[in-house]
Amino acid sequence: MAKKMLSRSEAKNQRRAVIAITLFCLPIVALYFTFFHLAFIDPDTGALTLRNFQFLYTTMDKKLTQISPIGPAMKNTVLFSVVVTACEVVISCMAGYALSRLRFTGRKVIQNMLLVLRMFPNLLLLIGVLYVLMTLKLSNSLTGVILVAIAFRIPGSTFIIKNHFDGIPRDIENSCLVDGCTRFSAFRQVIIYLVKPGLASISIFSFLSAWSNYILFNTLIFNSKTPVIATYLKSLSRPEQMIVDYNTFAAMAIVYVLPVLVFFVISQKALMKGNINGGKGV
């Protein structure tokens, strides 16, 4: 939309709308603000403190147990999120490209399958998945969870990527193929065109969901040898008994949420664009 002066009534409406939506957002902002307050302010003195952040580097004594530092959990979470995002993007790009551009036997079948799978209630299959992992000797390992996490998300992202491919002119690719490129290099050419909106949106969503994944780790990992921040936090905050106090928990939550928040703010523009251009059935 071109920049233009707003009429007086439009300006007035905009002001009202801003007020209305601010009122709506205020509780959300307040909620998250209190987290910072809890984490950084000493409840006794009211002064700024960093002592709630000890879990970053040292073992803390709380209640009757010791709380190990967050390091390994952080490492696993980062590893998990990065690997899942990378694999998911690559695999779904390849599949989406084939489905959109190539003619092959069984295409219709796979396309229909995709329609069902992209919103299949995969969480209800967890019992079956656990069995499969046990058979493959992959249960209780990060590799197993990574595979499941990728598998659970690729139908959805393949669908999105396929729609983006559908919207890209074939000319670039065709001229490339005429020049004697292989399919793979043609694929790369198209991918570059895609990079901006579609790829951004699937990788962002993939990363966000991988970062906060809890249920897969809770069900498919049997000991605390492979902690991620989600299970680490959960084990310290059972509903009937908080093992850490809320101040420390808030500090941990900030360490957990801040990276995604920053990542989200940076990527937010790309995300919105991706939604507008390829908004078909995200």
């Binding site: 995969n122 079956g128 493959l136 598998a151 139908p155």
Partner: peptide, 19 residues
């Protein structure tokens, strides 16, 4: 192009669904 997709989907959707 489709192989990795198909393998993952069969192992983690189709087999668990049958199970």
């Amino acid at each position: 192009f489709l192989t990795p997709f198909m393998i993952l989907v069969s192992i983690f959707y189709i087999v668990p669904a049958i199970l």
